[in-house]
Write a protein that binds this DNA or RNA. Structure first.
Length: 281
DNA sequence: ATGGCAGAAGCATTCTGA
């Protein structure tokens, strides 16, 4: 089972590139961020033509997330809900469409577009930290329900200096600060594992390159797009790769897709546990 | 230290992103 995440920086600007990519790679699930379009204007038909079902949670101009999947997503939820800590005031996060979750193949898919935060002394940075604290509370509740979780998206945080092309230059700054790294750790709480780091311990692997200063050509990137899986899924992970090729496209997104491959043989059998059990596996 | 590049809105230029 292939599960991918891609910040496309406007789905309407990136439509043909996104369709080309899913036709080539054939992911079972693709989580999109920064769709930048209201739900009634999302281009559904090209995805449906390629055999995909689409769930959207967007807004005008900014943010916006979507889940594209071969199997129709179930129990789709938009935004935060059910957080135990009501001091976090989850209603205050409703105007920015940054989280959509659903169940697919028995896995809880959580797709996030974490705020960038601008700079450490800004109100946007406070918003980023509050948003991540709310995500932590949200995951606490999801964890209590049990089951397998796959949390992915654009986190706008480099988890370590290995994830920045020039860590000294950006030390302590936005996307690289200890404050952000610690709040991310509190989101994960050791219960969610960075898929990429199971397979790769070295630096030099990026998922985002700035549009400016020839960053892609000079390979000056950051790894800020991540796929985290709950512990019971780690043994089923076959790979985690960043497909940097779409970043070389004409008029590309500044992000590349990240993808995991899960071996779900022993889970698939449970899907056909119906009375007319014609699937004898 | 600053701006650089890109997209949306909307028609000149501003806001936002990372």
């Amino acid at each position: 089972m292939l599960i991918a995440s891609w910040n496309v920086n406007s789905i309407r600007s990136r439509l043909s590139q996104t369709i080309d990519w899913i036709n080539k790679v054939s992911p079972d699930v693709l989580c999109l961020q920064e769709t930048k379009v209201m739900d009634d204007s999302f281009p559904l038909e090209p995805f449906e033509k390629s055999g995909y079902s689409v769930e959207v949670y967007g807004q005008k101009s900014y943010n916006g997330v979507a889940i594209i999947s071969k199997i129709k997503a179930e129990n789709v939820k938009k935004g935060f809900y059910g957080c135990a800590d009501y001091d976090l005031n989850i209603e205050s996060f409703l105007d920015q469409k940054r989280l959509i979750s659903a169940e697919i193949n028995g896995i809880k898919i959580i797709n996030v577009y974490v705020p960038n935060g601008s700079s450490l002394d800004s109100d946007k940075f406070k918003y980023k930290i509050n948003w991540l604290n709310c995500l932590a509370s949200f995951l606490d509740e999801e964890e209590k329900k049990g089951g397998m979780i796959c949390l992915m998206g654009d986190f706008n945080i480099a988890p370590s200096n290995l994830d920045i092309h020039d860590p000294k230059k950006y030390e302590g700054g936005i996307m690289a600060s200890d404050i952000e790294r610690n709040v991310l750790k509190n989101v994960l709480k050791g219960r969610l594992i960075d898929s990429f780091r199971i397979f790769e311990e070295n630096t030099g692997h990026w998922s985002w390159w700035d549009y400016r200063n020839n960053a892609y050509e000079l390979n000056k990137g950051w790894r800020i797009d991540h796929i985290y899986v709950s512990k019971e899924l780690t043994s089923k992970l076959k790979s985690c790769v960043i497909d940097s090729l779409p970043r070389a496209n004409l008029r590309p997104s500044d992000h590349a897709p990240v993808m995991i491959d899960l071996n779900l043989k022993d889970i698939d059998t449970n899907l056909f546990d119906e009375e007319d059990n014609f699937f004898e596996i």
